[in-house]
Nucleic acid binder design. Structure first.
Lengths: 283, 283
DNA sequence: TGGCGGTGTTAACAGGCTGTGAAAGGCGCC
DNA sequence: GGCGCCTTTCACAGCCTGTTAACACCGCCA
């Protein structure tokens, strides 16, 4: 169902194991900037075992050098960059929007972490930490980035008058944001991903909320209502979310008929705008 | 209730799977990836009793090996896969869209569950859990998947001018929805699946409604009436549902004669319009 | 031919499901 | 601590559906 995504992904199919050095399935190129040799050593051991391409540094390299490396991710401890740490972080993040940046450093205040993440870091890990956790987070970060980049490469997903940008968690129509909240966007994305399949409420709830839907919960309905409202506001000539009574919802961009756009059912449109069967026209 | 689906499942007999009794009606092939031997043991006991084909692993096998197993479902505890757990999940779900994937693991955060489900897992069960629940969920998941896969592989089912889409709970003719309600669709699906066999009212009722039909209940007749009406509206040149007097109904796409389409029974209809009660044709 | 049981057809009803608006509750931000 | 946004819950209205009943029609049989 979601295979349009992996169709675009640039990773070869062979899914194999540790040995060998050639870049393999899921392997990433990454660099570590850190003066803590023990940490770097342990980490590099692990990364080699996974076949990732890996480079370690102890100070900030020129930006263009980083660019040339075509990295997937960067692990950095700003401590070793002294006062220029924040600057560097900001520059890297703005110059390489496709790069996953993970800050891994000793104790820090909440304010520092917030600042770092605001400057564009994707994640913040506090030392001491287990290499596995660092790796897992790097993978998560890289996946997010990959996804966003894919989005960029293939162009935003367009259906009807809508433009859905995964990288912004937002839908646009005619260049204007529909101003969806996070959950609204998630519900929309799920429906869009289903490619016209009807999704049951339970399934929607489970995939978006992450746990089983309590009997009688109307959250999904309410969010669909909000989505419809915002989508209609942004793109009045289209209908996107269709109800299947007793089952659930289905996404399909559908142009409204002229009559529907002007006045709602002016006089005798005895049937629903969407689909209908008029024997006369079909015969 | 929907055991007609089983008829479609195709398990080749030759395989290197454990020597269980020959696959029986409703039995599934499944694999469990989990290092928790106690859990696996209890589960396997249960599964053997049900005659399901079952294989247990403690680490992630290569993808192509999984493919070769022709599984219906996979139960996995990503914990035992370490940092690659998410990757594995993602790969499996995208490479095997027909496979039902159930994550069964210890405590987890909402974020984790959402992530897992969005990567393509079908359900998420938290340990400790009762084997019965796991099995019930696997069945539900496998049913959903099989349905989606069947649809995908065989393409939409087409009979006469009708196109039946399981994923939309709907029938189409000439690209237009027949606007069937859920129950109408279920009755139609049952009749279509019977492949031209005559089904008794009692059987139809039992399978669709889920319990025995009360004596004198006319629900099936009413639904057949509604179906005929909607199907004729969508596809006027065809007759789909045939009555067998004193027995029940049979589905067969049949092109009407020109005379029948133009005027309903002009005067001397030498042949019954709907090919109704004609035991001779069925023999 | 008339009676009888099975089926076609229609309409009305009750209940369930969904749409909708608003209020209450949470949560993060300032 | 106050504030605002988002989420969730609640209540009510309206629509859709499944069900039942009633009547018309058809084929079979005496």
């Amino acid at each position: 169902m979601r295979d349009h995504l992996h169709a675009v992904a640039s990773f070869p199919d062979s899914s194999e194991l540790p040995p060998v050095a050639s870049p393999q399935q899921g392997a990433l190129r990454l660099a570590v900037i850190d003066a803590d040799s023990g940490f770097v050593h342990v980490l590099s051991k692990r990364l080699e075992g996974m076949g990732w391409q890996f480079r370690s540094l102890t100070s900030a390299p020129p930006l263009d050098e980083l660019v040339a490396q075509r990295l997937n991710a960067l692990i950095v401890d700003p401590t070793c960059l002294g006062a220029r740490g924040w600057d560097f972080l900001e520059q890297v993040c703005s110059a390489l929007p496709g790069l996953g940046v993970l800050v891994c450093t000793g104790r820090s205040t909440v304010a520092q972490r917030v600042r770092g993440l605001r400057l564009g870091a994707d994640d913040w890990v506090t030392k001491p930490c287990h290499p596995s956790e660092v790796i897992a987070r790097v993978e998560a970060v890289a996946r997010r980035r990959r996804r966003a980049r894919m989005q960029e490469e293939t162009g935003p997903l367009v259906v009807g008058e809508l433009e859905i940008r995964l990288d912004q968690f937002q839908a646009f129509a005619a260049g204007r944001s529909a101003e969806l909240t996070r959950r609204e966007f998630e519900v929309l994305q799920l429906l869009v991903d289903a490619q016209g399949q009807v999704l049951q409420r339970e399934e929607i709830y489970q995939r978006v909320w992450g746990y089983a839907m309590a009997h009688g919960d109307r959250s999904v309905d309410v969010f669909v209502r909000k989505l419809r409202h915002k989508l209609e506001r942004s793109s009045p000539a289209w209908v996107y979310i269709h109800t299947h009574f007793g089952i659930g919802y289905r996404f399909e961009a559908q142009l409204k008929s002229a009559a529907d756009v002007l006045g709602e059912e002016p006089a005798a449109p005895d049937r629903p705008p969407g689909a209908l069967a008029d024997p006369a026209t079909s015969a």
